[in-house]
Nucleic acid binder design. Sequence first.
DNA 1: ACGATTTGACCGCG
DNA 2: CGCGGTCAAATCGT
Length: 260
Amino acid sequence: MADCWLGNLATTASRERVIEEMKEGRELANQLRGVLFGSGSPAVDLVMKISKSFSNILSILNVNDFNYEHPISQIQAELGLGLADSPCLDARKSQESFIDGDCNKKRKTSHTQIRKTPFPIADGHAWRKYGEKNIMKAKYPRSYYRCTHIYDQNCKAIKQVQRIQEDPCLYQTTYIGHHTCTNFLAPPKLNMDCTSPGEPASTFISFETTNKLTDKHELSCVSSSPSMKSESRLKKTCDMDHNDQLLSISDYFMPPDPTS
DNA sequence: ACGATTTGACCGCG
DNA sequence: CGCGGTCAAATCGT
């Protein structure tokens, strides 16, 4: 991915891009470290080194990153939680800054959050793609995803992923609604196969990266949960009441819905 | 065979 | 009526 702008470091704009990308990489590395924290995985060290490398590069670029604070400590402060409470959740909450708003015409009552990342990013939930649409005046199509547990747990969370036209290295993900499913992540395993160049598959839990120099990059989370039955069948059979849901990852991951 | 993705058709809001 | 969002049959992958 980086090579799409590394050749233009001479310009201020490109330099800014480099810095932003580096910060993003460091942020993601910290996130991954949080995810791996407590799992006893040797990958933690590796991730810490990656994070440190990003910091070193930023230092070389003379970036005075005084505002940077380790995301996990931020979360602890925000949530009043210790890491032991839920490292995975903590890490994910820190992932990016959120932009709140109601930008979806057809779901004005739903709380939406927009995030921009260097690739379609994992958020710890299993998503299933249900549509793709070319948007007027947009160079890239928009992909539509909904929670895999829409029928078996009545989870109404959906998201839209679209590559940003002005900045093809970035993807904008719009989250609409909250997860009510209880499909927590198992401690993810690091998967560096880097083999799948495809658009984000919809059901992920273990982390895997795709960094071939293609149009499509992703850090995704592959669901290890059992597959669902066909939607049409579940529509008929899964009208269960789930009022006793546990707090889902997204309840940590996303700011509280002001409407609820 | 089963589940996920693709993609054209359809729906509904503005 | 146009556009974005969703549906669902067809297709693909394992």
